[in-house]
């Protein structure tokens, strides 16, 4: 599918809306709660965010397919385009840039110019959060969960974040393998 056609699907898909600030603040209160529950152990917070994202992703993919009406992607490059231009466009109204492909076409980066989840956010000034917390880590889980539902095992993590003082917000996504259709185990 051509790249412009993909963008058009992202632009034209109709979605019900809510006030963006309500979403942003709700996400903020989730992360704040986790930081409190895990006693500011940010590694654990990252893990929990990823897990929550995974749960969301597993259900979100269905919504994605129903709304966008797109079919199977021919290759991982097309998948990346679909994630950035349709997925993120529908659910977060942003279109991250797909870039930094490896030569074997299994790893790419998403660069976020804008990130509604991190609007209004400043990390705690405790000398650790800026080194350890990935504030938007839920997004990694969402990608992992939703792609798993369409037979792709991936790994995703943030490598930089403007909240940490970096110049860009970048997520690295790697294809681990395509999951073959597995037959249910034979009954004994």
């Amino acid at each position: 599918m051509s790249s412009t056609k993909t963008s058009r699907i992202g632009e034209e898909t109709r979605v019900d809306k809510v006030n963006a600030e309500l979403v942003t603040l709700t996400y903020g209160t989730i992360v704040a709660q986790l930081c409190q529950d895990y006693d500011s152990n940010y590694q654990d917070v990252n893990k929990q965010l990823d897990k929550m994202g995974y749960n969301i992703g597993m259900r979100l993919i269905e919504d994605f397919l129903a709304k966008s009406g797109v079919g199977r992607c021919a290759n991982f490059r097309e998948t990346a385009d679909m994630i950035a231009k349709v997925g993120f466009k529908i659910f977060l109204n942003v279109t991250p840039t797909v870039t930094n492909w490896t030569s074997d076409n299994t790893q790419f980066s998403l660069i976020f110019e804008d990130n509604p989840l991190a609007d209004f956010v400043e990390l705690p000034d405790d000398g650790r959060a800026q080194d350890e917390l990935w504030f938007s880590n839920i997004l990694c889980g969402v990608l992992r969960g939703s792609l798993e539902m369409v037979q792709m095992q991936i790994e995703a993590h943030f490598v930089s974040d403007v909240l940490r003082g970096d110049d860009t917000t970048e997520m690295r996504v790697s294809l681990v393998r395509y999951i073959e259709d597995e037959m249910p185990p034979e009954e004994e």
């Binding site: 809306k17 809510v18 963006a20 309500l22 996400y27 989730i30 919504d63 977060l92 109204n93």
Partner: peptide, 12 residues
């Protein structure tokens, strides 16, 4: 600014 209602529903 507006965002997808589904995103809110998933997060909440």
């Amino acid at each position: 600014a507006e965002l997808s209602r589904a995103s809110f529903a998933f997060l909440f």
